[in-house]
Nucleic acid binder design. Structure first.
Lengths: 192, 192
DNA sequence: CGTCTATTTGAATGTACTCAAAAGCGGTGG
DNA sequence: CCACCGCTTTTGAGTACATTCAAATAGACG
């Protein structure tokens, strides 16, 4: 892997050249085409992915075949089925590439090795978790406290870069409403 | 603080007596009575709390005065307004004691000191975050994919110990429904 | 026993859903 | 350039589910 990517992923961290090459060798670069499913449900989740370019989503398909988007990821985000990734178990999510993407994949194994060999990376990932956790809490609160319309408006403000990349039905499946409802909400907003 | 509590909090971690006393001095023991609010919204969140006994909840109050429960905590759980705690900013959640409780409080400052002085604690807290994150993801998925009735049933199975400690309207505010709806759901389940 | 709080019930309302059909949009090939 | 195709979004009508508001019942506790 080109080593320049290490400074893209681990911004704000000062690393020696030895550390950089050690980290580099732990990542694998992937070029993914739009439409490709890079992670299937019911398989062991051994990797997480850093998005250097493009757009992806992680989603759950329920018994009725309905899709529920758990997460979008654009540049500088990480994506995986983290519940499975952390517990080294089989996942329930699928991950789909929505726009041609450049990814860097990191195995749990290499990540654990980083923690031991380069402790500041453990701090880095801990902080990343803290932010993700805070984001999830915000989302839970939003689902509890806000109407569908408010959730949509919040979404467009919080993730303007994502809105341009994905279909409305992906957004609907993220907000927990149907495509039709989202369409009506958009109309209502446009005519007000 | 009695040092015996350190082994209660940091189970599965081998610590030297020096480390134990260092950790002990970082925690403060609290005895809290039912009904007491230990954290108010709009104040800086400097601590997180380990629950040794009792039951608490973290909740958000929206403009209309409606309450939304983000988290319950019973024995061995931690509770705080983590979004604010991690960013050392003002919180939006309140934390209420639902059953007389024994808590051990830890400041962000002391926690950061632990990370530096006793690195295995950073691993401990990282893993704790990973589990909490996984739990939140499950909850988001539940909110998206399940009906109110299914969410209630899942809740009673996942947190049987909590259900006994809290009022139905607390559970309703956790599930995102009204007390009346929860009552009807319970009736429906009972007569089936 | 009486009071306060929590839960249940009822009736009317509202919001989002389902299903079905129409309209819009983008790309491809004649 | 335009006609066609597939996919996405919009619109409409009827329905289901949860909400609101109000009132009745049930429980807990002094």
């Amino acid at each position: 892997m080109e080593e320049v990517i290490v400074s893209e992923i681990f911004k704000n961290i000062t690393l020696s050249s030895v550390e950089i090459s050690k980290i580099s060798s732990g990542f694998t670069k992937l070029e993914i085409k739009k439409g490709v499913i890079i992670m299937k449900a019911n398989e062991f989740v051994l990797h997480q992915y850093f998005v250097s370019k493009g757009c992806l989503r992680a989603f759950f398909v329920n018994q009725q075949g309905k899709e529920h988007t758990v997460q979008f990821a654009v540049k500088d985000w990480w994506i995986s089925d983290y519940t499975a990734f952390f517990s080294s178990s089989k996942g329930i999510l699928q991950i789909e590439c929505l726009q041609d993407a450049t990814l860097y994949k990191l195995s749990r194994e290499n990540m654990e090795r980083f923690y031991v060999e380069i402790p500041k990376l453990e701090s880095f990932f801990r902080k990343k978790m803290e932010k993700a956790f805070a984001g999830f809490q915000k989302r839970i609160l939003g689902n509890l406290a806000l109407s569908a319309k408010e959730r949509y408006v919040t979404f467009t403000h919080t993730y303007p870069s994502i809105e341009q990349n994905v279909k409305n039905y992906h957004i609907a499946s993220y907000l927990g409403i149907t495509t039709e409802s989202l369409s009506r909400i958009r109309k209502e907003i446009a005519t007000s």
